[in-house]
Each structure stands twice: as structure tokens, then as C-alpha cells.
Computed example of a mutant assay.
Amino acid sequence: MTTVKALKDLNSPPSPKKRFHFSVSIFATILLATLIGTYLDLLFTGIGLYSFPMRPFASIFTINIVFTLIGLPLFTTLFILISLRLHKWLKMMFMITISTLMAAFEKFAESIGFFTHHDDWQHYYSFYGYTIYFIFVLLFHYLLDKQIKNS
């Protein structure tokens, strides 16, 4: 029978656990993505392309402020963190899938009264819009992260 003995001179401290590091580039990207999403909502509701009939503080805001302050930052955070773990082609597939799901979610939100579009709106506009938005978010994060690491 083989036995293993512990080394007596092994006084090294235990290795530190790898902690999640929320980088400045991720925070800045989330902030920028939230601002862009908010301004696009304000622009599109202002010109009448869509509206939010059921929204908190309807007398103050023309957009759904809960989605803007909670949903959009959380969604963007998840999107970035998942995208950072994917290879280039999987990242593109992920963006296309999420864009398709967002366009489908808009149709569902319309059916339950949270969202209404102008009669001329086509839901493939949402697909292209979200795809461009996600590409911009990832490009901004990549360039900012690269700039921070090089300085």
C-alpha cells in the first residue's frame, strides 16, 4: 500500500481565489450603452415610431424609466459578460440570436400592452437596430479595453 506524507516545510499561504474583476471598460460600456438606449427611446417616442402605454411616471417620462434604469443596464451587463467568453463567430451568432429574440419580445410586449409601434413599423427594423447596437457596444468595449491595457 502506498501512502503519501505531507511536506513539513510547506508553509506557503493558500492560493488566493480568483475573484471576478469588474473592469472600468465594462462599467463605461454599460453606462454608454444605457445612455444610447435611453436617447434612442426618447428620439423614437418623440417622433412617434413607438410608445410605452403602460409605464411608471407617465406624466413625467415618455419612455419606460424602469427598463432604462434597471433592465437595460442588467441586460447590457449580461450581454457583455457572455460575449467576452465567446469566440468571434459564436459572438456574431449570439448577437444575431439576441437581436431576433428582442424583435420577437417586442411583438409579445405589444400583445400584452406594454409597447405599441406606429402602423408603418416593421419588426425587422428592430432586428437590424439591435444588431447594430450590439456591434457598437462590443466594439466600444473592445477599443476602450485595448486603450486601457496599452496605457
Rank of each mutant, 00 (worst) to 15 (best):
Ile148Thr: 03
Trp89Asn: 12
Met102Ala: 10
Ile30Pro: 02
Glu106Cys: 10
Ile47Gln: 03
Phe134Asp: 01
Phe44Glu: 08
Leu42His: 15
Glu106Lys: 10
Ser83Ile: 06
Ala109Tyr: 07
Leu40Val: 14
Leu138Ala: 04
Ala103Gln: 05
Ser23Phe: 00
Asp145Val: 00
Ser23Val: 00
Val24His: 00
Asp120Cys: 03
Tyr124Pro: 07
Leu81Met: 11
Thr45Met: 07
Ile132His: 03
Lys18Ile: 07
Val24Phe: 03
Lys8Glu: 09
Ile70Arg: 13
His21Gly: 00
Leu143Tyr: 08
Asp145Glu: 08
Ala58Thr: 12
Gly48Trp: 10
Phe22Tyr: 14
Ile26Tyr: 00
Tyr130Lys: 02
Ala28Met: 11
Pro16His: 12
Asp120Leu: 15
Leu101Glu: 06
Ile70Thr: 13
Lys88Leu: 10
Asp9Arg: 15
Phe115Glu: 04
Phe134Asn: 02
Leu144Met: 08
Ile132Ala: 15
Thr100Trp: 07
Leu78Glu: 04
Phe94Trp: 11
Asp120Lys: 15
Phe27His: 00
Ile26Asp: 00
Met102Ser: 13
Leu139Phe: 06
Val4Glu: 10
Val4Phe: 09
Pro16Glu: 15
Thr97His: 02
Leu35Asn: 02
His117Asn: 13
Leu35Ser: 13
Lys88Val: 06
Leu32Gly: 14
Arg55Asn: 06
Ile148Gly: 00
Leu74Val: 14
Phe52Cys: 05
Gly48Tyr: 08
Ser15Lys: 13
Gly48Ile: 04
Ile63Ala: 10
Ile47Asp: 04
